[in-house]
Design a binder for these strands. Structure first.
Length: 114
RNA sequence: GGAGUAAGUCAGAUGAUCGCCGGAUCAGUUACUGAUCGGGAGGAAAGUCCGAACACCACAGAGCGGGGUGCUCCUUAACGGGGAGUCGUGGCAACACGAAGGAAAGUGCAACAGAAAGUAUACCGCCUUUUUUUAAGGUAAGGGUGAAACGGUGCGGUAAGAGCGCACCAGUUCUUCAGGUGACUGGAGAAGCUUUGUAAACCCCACCCGGUGCAAGACCAAAUAGGGAAGUGUCUGAGGACUGCUCGUCCUAGCUUUCGGGUAGGUCGCACGAGCCAAUGUGCAAAUAUUGGCCUAGAUGAAUGAUCGUCACUUUUUUCAGGGUAACCUGAUUGAAGAACAAAAUUCGGCUUAUGAUUUGCUCCGACC
RNA sequence: GGGCGUAUAACUCAGUGAUUAGAGUGGGGGUCUCUAAAACCUCAAGUCAGGGGUUCAAUUCCCCUUGCGCCCA
């Protein structure tokens, strides 16, 4: 049984990392999200979440971030290889239900794996 | 029952599973891991509109400039906040709102219309004289214009009129009496004194304000190299000290611009405070004093979540029971949906704005007894 | 987090306490031309971001809200 933890070392934490990733990474689209991914130089998969002010107010943005993190936490072991991923939320994420967003996340992680 | 008004309260609860961010203790080991225990968003955390603490700039200076506040008394660390009043405005009322000093220190502005927009003037009128088309003088009652026209009504007076005189009313200024800490209120008297509006126009008066803000600032580690060009200045001048100007003080020996190069990692600041709760005293109250109890988030691409149950709340559907002629009301049952505004970012005191539910007092209206 | 600025026609900007808020570009129509461009004439298009207040009168002065943008190390 794999542990479903999610620590700081699984996250992207510096602006420079985000910038370099967006320059060189491959991009994947979806109705709700935009993902940028690249092979990591570490021995683990790391994730960064970008939710701009366009999506909504602070409460909405926190909610989206938590949903993305929760999904990543539960499905991390399914991702093969070591990747750096940046998930960028689009505007229409704001109003939608949790289940729909979860489905969209499942979809986009599926695209990244291919 | 309806409409309104004021004040207050809460911000769903609880369980399971998987997680997130700090803290304490213990163990292993030597900077990480594990175990246990305990904590983890708001009434507005928001807007950044005020006031402070704190830090640096000189523990903060002078003058000018600039900005703010503006009825009274009280309260507070402070405030543009709050409380209690005064006056004015709105409302039938409960009550609410008010940047509420000065226009009699000075300046400006008041479009169009109107004769005239603030100290004078006279378009139509009215009156007198002369002429009999008119001219001169008097007049501000009436008309007309405008948002606003120089107190109102009446009587006298007059050629016609006019505060020209008088009575009453309204206001202003002055004197005075009583009440109040005071704003102010009530009364008496005098002066024909009758003064336009605007200070959220300049301004005057009184009081207050140095600047920048935790990305303030301090420390540690790492790295390096301080170089080229141009301009300016070189001794009573130049530059800097995050204030527009002048002065003063302190610092540097160079300073500014540009080209090229480097860095932007961590720790502290940072969670015991003008703190919260309760009781008692003082005070109309805002507040405050004493005593007792409590410790209550601290992240930094940024924690406090997700899923599934149970119970409660609101709306609605089905079925049943009771009441009623009926519309419908009450209670139970069953399924479904909903549950506002909104996320700490150095910390406090306020203000403002957004917003769900609910309780109580008061006012007005209607019905019944 | 903290500190600032801005909003006027489809676009870029003026403007000022007062008549129906202007200019350029763009758009429509016309003149000229065989046609087009240029030039000239002409027309339309504004809740002066929204809501309150001061004033006789507000796009302008004051307050609140909203949108957009900038700065810090």
């Amino acid at each position: 049984m794999l542990k479903e933890t999610f620590l700081k070392e699984n996250r992207l934490r510096k602006r420079s990392e985000f910038v370099s990733l967006s320059k060189t990474g491959n991009k994947y689209h979806n109705s709700h999200f935009l993902a940028v991914a690249e092979k990591s130089r570490f021995e683990r998969t790391r994730i960064g979440i970008t939710v701009s002010k366009k999506v909504g107010c602070a409460v909405v943005r926190n909610k989206v971030k938590r949903l993305v993190r929760e999904h990543f936490r539960k499905n991390r072991h399914k991702i093969k290889g070591n990747l750096d991923i940046n998930i960028i939320a689009k505007k229409r994420t704001a109003g939608d239900d949790n289940r729909i967003i979860d489905k969209a996340l499942h979809d986009i992680f599926h695209r990244i794996e291919r």
